[in-house]
Amino acid sequence: MPMRFAAIADIHGNHLALEAVLADIRAQGIADLVNLGDMLSGPLDARRTIEILMNLDAVHVLGNHDRYLLDRPPEKMGSWDRPAHAALNAVQLDWLRAQPMTRVFRDRVFLCHATPENDEVYWLDTVHPDGTVALSPLDRIEQFAQGITQSLILCAHTHLARTVRLRDGRLIVNPGSVGSPGYRDKHPFPHVVEAGTPHARYAILELVDAAWQVTFRHVVYDHEAMAALARRNNQPELANALATGWIK
Rank of each mutant, 00 (worst) to 15 (best):
A6E: 05
A7D: 00
A9L: 10
H15A: 07
I25Y: 04
A27P: 07
D38G: 09
M39P: 08
L40F: 02
P43Q: 05
R47C: 10
T49F: 06
E51I: 05
E51K: 10
N55V: 01
L56Q: 12
G63D: 07
N64I: 11
H65V: 09
H65E: 07
R67I: 00
Y68K: 10
P74W: 05
R82N: 05
P83S: 09
A84S: 11
P100S: 14
V109C: 02
F110K: 05
E117H: 12
N118P: 07
D119R: 12
V121W: 01
H128R: 09
P129T: 05
T132G: 02
A134S: 04
L138P: 05
Q146S: 15
G147Q: 04
Q150V: 01
L154S: 13
C155L: 06
L160M: 13
L160C: 07
R162D: 02
T163Q: 13
V164H: 05
R170M: 11
R170C: 11
R170D: 06
G176M: 05
S180P: 00
H187V: 09
H187D: 03
F189L: 12
V192S: 11
E194Y: 12
A200T: 15
I204C: 03
I204T: 02
E206A: 02
V214I: 14
Y221K: 06
Y221T: 00
A230E: 09
Q235N: 11
L238H: 03
A243M: 10
T244K: 03
I247A: 15
